[in-house]
């Protein structure tokens, strides 16, 4: 474990806490893409298949349970909670995310570390996570004005993988046979998707103005 990876995990955790805070405090999920949240449930379930077979550390197991539990809780809230589901902007959340699932799975069948069930699903989860934010970013562009908590949620979510890229660079130089090219390349693509969001987020922060994404 290095400081970059720990910072990345904490930033990821913060993004989830901010989203839960928004939903529970405001009893609203306006501006949040249910499709992106559903993709994250698939990402975590596909990635943590080794939850009960490979024990790495207490921290690793606890964080996996937190990520799986929180992503399921968010989807449950947006689909089932009476007050919250009424605020879901269904007509703005129209990205056909099934293609993202299909594309990622096909890519995982072609590009993986080992042709085993667990490795295919691990690569699938890595590719899917890279594109999972797309429905949310498209929805933000459509909804124009972004409320603070939603903006902070997306910001931390984008920042966490940027920390992971620093972690991979650090491990590349400190560990002899460290190679994570699947996660690294996918992480670069994932962080690149946030580039324009980060730009507009920085502008809004600099001008102390509301976050406006060009339609």
């Amino acid at each position: 474990m290095n400081i970059f990876r720990f910072a990345g995990d904490m930033t990821h955790l913060i993004s989830i806490v901010v989203l839960l805070l928004k939903i529970y405090a405001t009893k609203s999920c306006s501006g949040i893409s249910l499709k992106t949240q559903e993709l994250y449930v698939i990402v975590f379930l596909a990635r943590y298949l080794d939850l009960f077979t490979d024990f790495i550390s207490v921290y690793n197991t606890v964080m996996k349970l937190v990520f799986i539990g929180s992503s399921l809780a968010i989807v449950w809230c947006m689909r089932m909670h009476r007050a919250v589901k009424r605020t879901y902007d269904k007509e703005l959340d129209t990205f056909r995310h099934y293609f993202l699932v299909l594309g990622s799975f096909v890519l995982a069948l072609l590009l993986h570390e080992k042709f085993t069930f667990q490795e295919i699903f691990w690569a699938f989860s890595i590719y899917l996570e890279a594109v999972a934010i797309l429905p949310q970013l498209v929805m933000l562009q459509r909804s124009g004005n972004v409320d603070n908590l939603t903006g902070q949620y997306v910001f931390f979510l984008g920042a966490y993988r940027a920390f992971y890229i620093l972690n991979w660079i650090y491990r590349f130089f400190t560990e002899p046979h460290f190679s994570r090219w699947i996660a690294c390349l996918s992480g670069l693509v994932q962080t690149a998707f946030y580039a324009d969001f980060f730009y507009y987020y920085f502008i809004s922060w600099k001008n102390n103005a509301k976050l406006q994404l060009p339609a």
Partner: peptide
């Protein structure tokens, strides 16, 4: 402990 190149990351 962490096996080399196992998936020790989240």
């Amino acid at each position: 402990q962490e096996k080399p190149n196992s998936h020790d990351e989240l």
